[in-house]
Simulated scan of single mutants.
Amino acid sequence: MFNKELVDAVRDKMIARKETLAVAESVTSGYLQAAISNAKDAKDFFQGGITAYNLGQKYRHLLVDPIHAQACNCVSEQVAESMALHVCELFKSDWGVGVCGYAAAGKESGGEMYAYFAISYDNKIINSGRVESTKKEGEETQIYFTEILLQQLYAYLLQNPD
């Protein structure tokens, strides 16, 4: 289901660097956690993750600004950044990934499927942005977003030598 070579490459870099990762997700529904936790020796770098769908849980666990989040239905770059930063605090990890968005083309998303993501390292956002999907709604789009996040994370691990 997931690109095993990519997951293994992320694992290898994390272990070589002696660093850890945690993830906070909503639109991907735990697929990112599933991909990473299936890596061999995941316990050596993966601290864990949280899937938080609603504003109350995003605020409570990930300190997302409730006024901003309510105004954008919890889907924005700012929300993803807060998720990435605060999941590191929650799990005491070096790296954090946050993702929120829409895996179905509904009224709230303007008929589009997209996600905002953020990657944090050492308490700073190092990458964030928006990714769009033309895949089939639901699981196919969730898996697509998961693959994009893994690619983005790996690219930043490559930019910073072990």
Rank of each mutant, 00 (worst) to 15 (best):
C74M: 12
A71Y: 14
R60K: 14
Q78R: 06
E77P: 15
C88G: 03
H68N: 13
A52L: 11
A39S: 09
S37K: 03
A42M: 08
K40G: 01
A71D: 10
E77V: 13
Q78V: 15
G30R: 03
H86Q: 08
Q47S: 03
G49N: 09
Q70H: 15
A80W: 02
C72S: 11
N73Y: 13
H68S: 14
A84L: 07
R60N: 10
N73S: 11
L32V: 04
K40I: 11
G56P: 06
Y31T: 00
A35S: 03
Y53V: 13
I36M: 05
M83R: 02
N38P: 02
N54Q: 12
D41S: 12
A39T: 03
I67M: 06
A42D: 09
H61E: 05
E77K: 12
V87F: 03
A42F: 08
K58I: 10
G49V: 10
K58Y: 04
G48Q: 14
V75H: 11
D65F: 11
A71G: 13
F46L: 10
V64T: 07
Y31L: 05
D65R: 09
G56K: 05
A52W: 04
E81M: 12
Q70W: 15
G48E: 12
A80C: 08
K43E: 09
A35L: 05
V87Y: 04
A34K: 06
A39E: 03
T51P: 02
S76R: 07
F46H: 01
A39F: 06
A80G: 07
C88A: 07
V64E: 00
Q47I: 14
L62W: 04
N38Y: 00
S76I: 08
V87N: 03
S76N: 10
Q57S: 12
F45N: 01
G48K: 15
A42W: 04
K43R: 13
C72T: 15
Q78Y: 10
N54R: 13
H86W: 00
G49P: 00
R60V: 09
A42C: 09
P66D: 07
P66C: 11
Y59I: 06
H86V: 01
K40L: 08
A42H: 06
Q57I: 12
R60W: 05
A84C: 10
A39Q: 03
H61T: 10
Y53D: 09
A39L: 02
Y59H: 10
C88D: 00
Q33N: 02
H86L: 01
V79P: 02
D44A: 15
N38S: 09
D41T: 09
Y59D: 02
E77R: 11
N54H: 08
Y31D: 00
Y59L: 05
V64R: 04
E89H: 12
A69Q: 11
I67Y: 00
V79C: 04
S37C: 03
T51M: 02
A69R: 14
H68V: 12
A42L: 06
D41A: 13
K40D: 04
L85T: 08
V87D: 00
M83W: 07
Q57Y: 00
K58V: 08
H86I: 02
Q57T: 15
E77F: 02
H68Q: 14
D65G: 08
M83A: 05
R60S: 09
F45H: 02
I50N: 02
A80F: 05
